[in-house]
């Protein structure tokens, strides 16, 4: 295992990692405190429709066809994106780690069966699968997160299974088996801590992907109808693309910045958790 201080040091050696962390922190702060500091309802008609960004007091980033405030949409959308990105990933990691650990630890028939199921979920085209799930179970923040989790756990399962297969053979695990340690205890205290690093790196990529998927869903009109999200804003803005393209541009840049900063953080984590030469 890597000493904590050297890991933090290595992380801060990456310029993009630091930039990503700063942007991401700003976005998280915006998502948490934004609605209190800028208490404008994203659904309210607050100004004349299709106001271009003026950076003034009223609708600083402009307003849409219905006179809704773009800045307020941006702030509230950050919340939705992050909540869905994190909860979907957390659920996917939970499923993936369980399946991968069981398959890799017990091997044999259990492994075969679980891997076949994993293959099934990997074969079904992800985004289409999410669309069907959300359409059938009705869109809400919960169903969207759940649907994204359902399609994204196989990557974690395969990763964890691979780690378990190799760690299971190591001497320290064999010795735990010999001294009669219980199976769950071996899994949780001996093997799992050793495959945390790659799981963390994969999770960061999964959060980024989940945010992109959610944006795609709400762009198609499959978002939670009760919350304002960036994808939905692009969907609304699309109708006045030719004249008021800022309506499409602004939320798109927000998505891009968020996903990019998460990717930067993920890369820096990867480099600092798996140091090579």
């Amino acid at each position: 295992m890597i000493a904590r201080s050297s890991f933090i040091q290595r992380y801060f050696q990456s310029r993009t990692g630091v930039i990503g962390l700063i942007i991401l922190t700003l976005i998280i702060v915006m998502a948490i405190f934004g609605p209190t500091l800028y208490p404008v309802d994203p659904w309210d008609m607050v100004s004349r429709p299709l106001q271009w960004p003026s950076f003034g007091a009223e609708a600083p980033l402009g307003s849409d066809v219905l006179g809704r405030d773009v800045l307020s949409g941006l702030i509230n959308g950050a919340r939705v994106s992050l909540i869905i990105g994190i909860s979907a990933t957390a659920a996917a990691v939970a499923i993936g780690v369980t399946v991968g650990a069981v398959a890799g630890y017990f091997r044999g028939l259990t492994d075969d069966a679980l891997m076949r199921i994993t293959e099934v979920f990997q074969t079904i085209p992800n985004f289409l699968f999410v669309i069907v799930l959300v359409a059938v179970f009705r869109p809400s923040v919960f169903t969207i997160s759940a649907a994204i989790a359902v399609v994204s756990w196989p990557a974690v399962a395969r990763l964890v299974r691979g780690e378990f297969l190799s760690l299971r053979q190591r001497a320290f695990v064999e010795s735990c088996v010999t001294i009669g340690m219980s199976t769950p205890r071996i899994i949780f205290t001996q093997i799992l801590p050793n495959c945390i690093a790659p799981v963390i790196v994969t999770s960061s990529i999964m959060i980024a992907t989940a945010i992109l998927v959610e944006a795609g869903l709400s762009f198609l009109g499959l978002g939670d109808p009760n919350v304002m999200s960036w994808g939905a804003m692009i969907g609304f803005g699309r109708q006045s693309l030719r004249t008021s393209w800022y309506l499409t541009l602004i939320p798109g840049v927000a998505i891009q910045l968020t996903v990019l900063s998460i990717s930067f953080v993920g890369e820096a984590l990867n480099d600092s958790l798996n140091p090579r030469l």
Partner: peptide, 22 residues
């Protein structure tokens, strides 16, 4: 590449429409 990786497809499409069609 990382930037393209972070761009929602539909949004990239809309931006291309603005540029090349509009």
């Amino acid at each position: 590449a990382l930037l393209a990786y972070s761009t929602p497809l539909f949004w990239a499409g809309l931006m291309l429409i603005i540029l090349f069609s509009v």
